[in-house]
Amino acid sequence: MSNGPHAKLAELGLALPDVVPPVASYVPAVQSGQHVYVSGQLPVVEGKLLATGQVGAGVSPEQAKDLAERCALNALAAVDSLVGLENIVKIVKLTGFVASAPGFHGQPAVINGASDLLGAVFGEAGRHARSAVGVAELPLDSPVEVELIVEVG
């Protein structure tokens, strides 16, 4: 366990939060076969959204990158509660949504906050396919949302 994902998180000065309760009719994560599908996670800490608004108008790209990292941490908490982080074989796919002001085109750099965290925690197994999508609005006026597909064994 000393080289496992919990230890890597601790080295990064991070700890898994409690699983964020759903804001609608869904579950945080579901397993099907050897894959866990994580519902879209917002940058919520202790029940509160860390920021609201669009990136490029009120939310800076740097702040949004940090928010994307928090989304990924919340996604990992959902996986851990279902199957345990130590059972992750591979981060397969990350989809990131960025509430983008007109003319903002830096979605990939924002979602790097989530991708970089997964790489730091899981190394080569954290390298994943990815989409970074700009949208007009997200639930609760969140600036970012991240969902994951992970392979478990």
Rank of each mutant, 00 (worst) to 15 (best):
S2Q: 11
S2L: 11
S2M: 09
N3F: 13
G4A: 04
K8P: 06
A10D: 09
E11T: 10
L12M: 11
L12R: 05
G13K: 03
A15H: 08
A15C: 03
L16Q: 09
D18I: 03
D18R: 04
V19A: 02
V20F: 04
V20D: 08
V20I: 13
P22L: 09
P22E: 14
P22G: 08
V23M: 07
S25P: 01
Y26A: 07
P28I: 00
P28F: 00
A29H: 03
A29N: 05
Q31G: 07
Q31L: 11
G33S: 08
G33A: 06
G33M: 04
H35V: 07
V36R: 03
Y37I: 12
V38A: 06
S39Y: 04
G40D: 15
L42G: 04
L42N: 00
P43A: 02
V45C: 05
K48Y: 10
L50W: 06
A51N: 03
A51Y: 08
A51M: 06
G53S: 02
V59W: 00
S60L: 00
P61S: 13
P61D: 01
E62C: 02
E62L: 05
Q63C: 04
Q63R: 13
Q63F: 01
A64I: 10
D66Y: 03
L67W: 00
A68I: 09
A68Q: 03
E69T: 04
R70Q: 15
C71K: 06
A72M: 01
A72I: 01
L73F: 08
L73P: 10
N74L: 00
A75D: 02
A75H: 10
A75P: 06
L76V: 05
A77G: 11
S81K: 14
S81W: 05
L82I: 15
V83W: 05
V83Q: 10
G84Q: 05
N87G: 09
N87F: 07
I88L: 12
I88S: 11
V89E: 13
T95D: 11
V98E: 00
V98N: 00
S100T: 13
S100W: 04
S100N: 03
A101P: 09
P102A: 01
P102M: 01
P102G: 00
P102T: 00
P102F: 03
F104W: 01
F104E: 05
H105A: 15
G106H: 09
P108Y: 14
P108W: 14
A109Y: 08
V110M: 03
I111K: 07
A114I: 08
S115G: 05
L117R: 07
A120W: 06
A120Q: 15
F122N: 09
G123E: 15
A125F: 08
G126C: 13
G126K: 12
R127P: 02
R127W: 12
H128N: 14
H128A: 10
H128T: 14
A129T: 12
A129F: 11
R130C: 04
S131E: 12
S131W: 12
A132Y: 12
G134W: 08
V135M: 10
A136D: 13
E137M: 11
E137T: 15
L138A: 01
P139C: 05
L140M: 15
D141N: 14
D141H: 11
S142F: 00
P143C: 03
P143Q: 01
V146L: 00
L148M: 11
L148S: 07
I149F: 01
I149W: 08
I149N: 07
I149H: 04
V152P: 11
G153L: 10
G153M: 12
G153C: 04
